[in-house]
Design a protein around this nucleic acid. Structure first.
Lengths: 228, 228
DNA sequence: TATCCTCATTTTGTATACAGAATACATGAA
DNA sequence: TTCATGTATTCTGTATACAAAATGAGGATA
């Protein structure tokens, strides 16, 4: 027999609670995806009338969503002149990578201090799977696992603020990194760096892990510097 | 005779252009101040009806402002249940300080690499003025100059993204730091650390400057840990 | 008394309406 | 033609209206 539903079970976040996403949030997520996937080009105007019709919502939640995206740095609202998708300059991208690399370093250091042996083992197991995919040159699954590897490593830092700010910068760079990833010539290097990370993690050598992670990220610059 | 006004002079940002702040932005700034100054207590509900009346605006720009503040992490919007001023947990504060300290370190390192001799001299001059105020135990002017010192040092990093993320975390911590600053017993220590910073800056020793700045900020934890 | 139900009230989320600003267009002068 | 000026149209910002959800106050029942 099933345990009866308690009031406390209905709190937000609990699996039983049906999640009601407001229109605002749905719209924000949708537009975010449109930007990341390249349907809305950087620098182009966001046609309120058109998008509102296509999404089937009124202007109120739509404009609220724009405010959110503006605060996230994905779009720019020019008073009385409409909104445009933010176009990152070369300097923007470099400064973001610089900060992100530095945050990755902190992730690495904290993860070595705070992760449990089990958590580290799990991550090393994931690393092993990535190696297998690399041998098979199985690009897309590798890419997915790579993202998971990095996000899980960051989680091991046990620092919500760190996670949040990494996430914000990642979101802004996602589009441009995606374009940069079409060049395959950096894969071998990336894998060797991942091996270094695995070693450092195994040894809980925070300084080393942090250094590799930071260096690893800064490679991104080589991949994207020609497209900004 | 005055130089005639050129078209290019009318670009946004130029002193001649009249600045028109939207209601939305004004409201966001206003509420931000109310939170930082403690008129809106952490955890308390934000009474839309009341505030809208007091501010003399309609709900539309008001709610847009809330979205902005939510994205900044100053308030929490609970769907269908109203908004509350975000109440930082102990963990929130510690994680923010941890990240902020790490970002300060980066500021220091970059500033040593990138600042001009003149910029460094100006900052050292400012440091000198702070020492004078410390000798006179002139608390408030010292506090103001201290803020300017840190923000100008960060600017010398030449990294807009760094500045932005530092600013976001600072805004969230501002209220609680203000409360913590009522204890005066850390002043001497702070001044000695500032001396260290000045030395490192003079020598353009980025690693050392970064280390001191990070340590300097982590002192904040001692001042605020009892009030969260 | 405590718990549940019902209904009135308030609050929230979304849509729409309207005014003012920006933009596009067209007409006329040099 | 090119530029300037005035006008129509579109778009943006704000207010208001309305529906749905949440809250709160009785009152009935055990």
């Amino acid at each position: 027999m099933r345990k009866p539903v308690e009031i406390s079970d209905l709190d937000a976040g609990h699996p039983i609670a049906i999640q009601k996403e407001t229109l605002h949030d749905q719209v924000a997520n949708r537009i975010r995806d449109l930007i990341i996937e390249g349907y809305l080009e950087p620098g182009s105007r966001i046609d309120e009338t058109k998008l509102v019709q296509q999404l089937g919502v009124s202007r109120t939640p739509f404009r609220e969503a724009l405010r959110t995206l503006a605060a996230e740095g994905l779009i720019v609202i020019r008073p009385s002149k409409g909104s445009i998708v933010r176009k990152l300059t070369r300097e923007d991208v470099y400064s973001m990578l610089e900060v992100l690399a530095h945050l990755e370093r902190l992730s690495g250091e904290l993860a070595c201090q705070r992760a449990s042996d089990e958590e580290i083992d799990d991550l090393l197991k994931l690393h092993g799977e990535m190696l297998v995919l690399y041998e098979k040159r199985d690009r897309l699954p590798y890419y997915k696992l790579n993202q998971e590897f990095h996000s899980r490593l960051s989680e091991l830092s046990g620092n919500e603020t760190l996670l949040r700010h990494q996430g914000m910068i990642q979101a802004q760079l996602k589009r441009i990194r995606f374009i940069g990833n079409r060049k395959p010539e950096y894969w071998a290097k990336a894998v060797s760096e991942h091996n270094e990370m695995a070693d450092a993690l195994k040894a809980r050598d925070g300084a080393r892990l942090g250094e590799v992670m930071s260096r690893h990220l800064m490679n991104t610059w080589d991949r994207v510097k020609d497209i900004v």
